[in-house]
Simulated scan of single mutants.
Amino acid sequence: MNRDEFHASNLTSQELLQQYAGILGELRARGVIRTLNAPAGDLAETLTARAYRGELAPNSEKSWDVRAADGRLLQVKSRVIAASALSKPIQFSVFRSWDFDAAVFVVIAAESYGVLGAFEVPSEVVSARAGKASWVNGEIVTLSLMGLAALSDCIDVTTRLQNALESLDLPVSLAE
């Protein structure tokens, strides 16, 4: 199929779902994602691993997602939002452990899957900001992008993750 000929509007809902499943399978085969779940979390972890020249944790690891080249353990949290909602609070997935050095919060554009924002925040800063969520047996952080950027010792790593996304189809050695 010619890349220019694909028009989602010409497909039935079932055909769209089949295409989506096929796309997830191809992204998994390429190593961009690790599961066949919605790809945002896997994508954010892959981009973080590339941006930090690190390694992904085994799928069963519950405390961290990426071991950075400098040895630090990073927990990656992501959300997909519409660009029009950037100023609104974003609820990230639950933290059940604090056995990591820093969290990397990645906000992905619903319209394009581009990286809207990415911030590295030390574990102790995240822990101090997190609120108890007994219904999920953990703690949750809810902040806007501006709120994330305002946290103490926060590092804006948006450009690093955007560069990792742009070089996603290059071998890791060439992307560096």
Rank of each mutant, 00 (worst) to 15 (best):
G114W: 12
L16Y: 01
V107F: 09
L56S: 02
D101G: 04
P89N: 08
R30T: 03
R28L: 11
V94L: 15
M146F: 09
E120L: 04
K88L: 05
L116F: 08
V106R: 12
W64L: 12
D169I: 02
D70P: 07
V106A: 10
S63M: 03
L161Q: 01
L161H: 06
R50L: 08
P58Y: 11
W64Q: 14
S93E: 13
D65H: 04
C154H: 07
I33F: 07
N37G: 04
A133F: 00
L165W: 11
A164H: 14
N2I: 00
F92T: 02
V172R: 14
S134N: 14
P122G: 06
L148C: 08
D42C: 14
A49S: 05
S97C: 00
I140C: 10
Y52E: 14
L24Y: 06
T35H: 12
E124L: 11
S93H: 15
I81V: 05
A8I: 01
T142C: 08
R50Q: 08
R79N: 08
A40L: 05
S127P: 09
E26S: 06
R129D: 10
L47M: 14
G31S: 09
G131F: 09
G138H: 04
R72W: 01
L27E: 03
G31H: 08
V141L: 15
A130T: 13
N163S: 11
A109F: 12
S144G: 10
L36K: 06
R96Y: 13
K132E: 15
R160K: 13
E120I: 00
L174F: 03
A102R: 12
D42Q: 12
N10L: 10
V107R: 10
L74G: 06
D70W: 10
L27A: 12
N37H: 08
T46K: 09
M146G: 11
L143G: 00
G71C: 07
A69K: 14
A109Q: 13
V172D: 12
L74S: 02
L47P: 13
D4C: 00
S78P: 00
F95N: 11
L24A: 10
K132G: 11
L170P: 07
F6V: 06
N2G: 00
R79C: 07
L47E: 14
A82M: 02
G25Y: 04
A44W: 02
G71T: 09
S63R: 01
A85H: 03
A38F: 05
E61A: 15
H7T: 03
Q19R: 03
N37W: 06
S87Q: 13
V126M: 15
P58E: 13
R53S: 09
